[in-house]
Design a protein around this nucleic acid. Structure first.
Length: 279
DNA sequence: CCCCAGGGTAGGG
DNA sequence: CCCTACCATGGG
């Protein structure tokens, strides 16, 4: 990808079919981005603000440098991953091919694992606007201020002092206990996220499932979105529908290595179909 | 009043 | 292994 500095912005030449920023940042894998009035998208990730826009051929990241792009955003946005070859390996039937046509611009972000873990603890039996609200309020209360109404997601250390009463008013509901258990396990040394990062996938699953509130679905989301384990396969209500309708005999084993990527394409495609019908 | 939301847990068959 | 009630909260 060609990357150049233009004034205070960085321009990256990309094909929108292989990288769709709006789809990627608004498909439910992260909860800290919002569309801007100018048609772009902005949010907070990796402890920083980022404001971007996209045309059919170019991504613009505002107020940054090529150095910062290579140091932070290239990796975060998954620009360093060869999606052309991943997608090629996933074309094994008509359904996935169609989903890829519609949603093939989605990439799996490389998010901070602690943020992803907390976010998907909050996500259970919840909807995306409310998840976003809770994550924002959690950041406002415990994170660092970057600007007006802009706060970083708290670190484990910043959440370590939180008591149950400190989590009131964040719309967490009963999920406040899950956050507390998660933080206690990390600070207490029972759980090491760096060990999860390097462990075999099934061992990583066992470690994460020990946290209260981490069941099969949340666990796979954390592995996929927080640890970039592209073989993790979250089964939510949408994917359950897809599996029942199109894969009654199970998801193709040939897709196993990148099942999570395929899952995102199918998730986005199915959700879009359903929205089109109900509209 | 109902229902649902990118589910999970506890408890009982 | 299965099934079910229940879990806070807010929006439709």
């Amino acid at each position: 990808m060609k990357t150049i500095q233009r004034g205070s912005d960085v321009i990256i030449t990309v094909n929108k079919a292989d990288l769709n920023l709006l789809d990627t940042l608004d498909c439910g894998q992260c909860f800290r981005f919002t569309a801007t009035a100018d048609g772009g998208i902005e949010g907070i990730a990796m402890g920083r603000l980022i404001h971007m826009s996209q045309t059919d051929t170019e991504v613009t990241i505002y107020d940054t440098t090529v150095e910062e792009y290579h140091a932070i955003w290239e990796r975060y946005l998954g620009m360093d991953v060869d999606y052309a070859s991943i997608k090629q390996s996933l074309v094994f039937d008509e359904m996935i091919a169609k989903a890829m046509e519609v949603a093939g611009g989605i990439r799996i972000l490389k998010q901070d694992s602690f943020e992803a873990l907390c976010s998907f603890l909050i996500s259970q039996n919840n909807n995306i606007p409310r998840i976003k609200g809770s994550v924002r309020k959690l950041s406002e209360r415990f994170g660092n201020k970057l600007g007006e109404d802009m706060y970083t997601f708290p670190t484990v250390e910043q959440l370590a002092c939180a008591r149950k009463e400190d989590l009131q008013g964040l719309s967490l509901g009963y999920r406040d206990d899950y956050i507390l258990d998660c933080v206690a396990r990390i600070t207490g040394g029972e759980l090491s996220l760096s060990q999860v990062a390097t462990a075999e996938i099934d061992e990583a699953r066992t470690m994460l499932r020990a946290i209260k509130g981490v069941g099969p679905k949340v666990c796979e989301c954390v592995l996929l979105f927080g640890f970039h384990r592209l073989e993790a396969f979250p089964i939510d209500t949408w994917i359950k529908k897809v599996l029942e309708m199109y894969y009654p005999n199970g998801f193709p084993a040939a897709a196993a290595q990148y099942a999570g990527v395929a899952q995102q394409y199918l998730f986005h495609y199915q959700r879009q179909l359903d929205n089109a019908v109900s509209r």
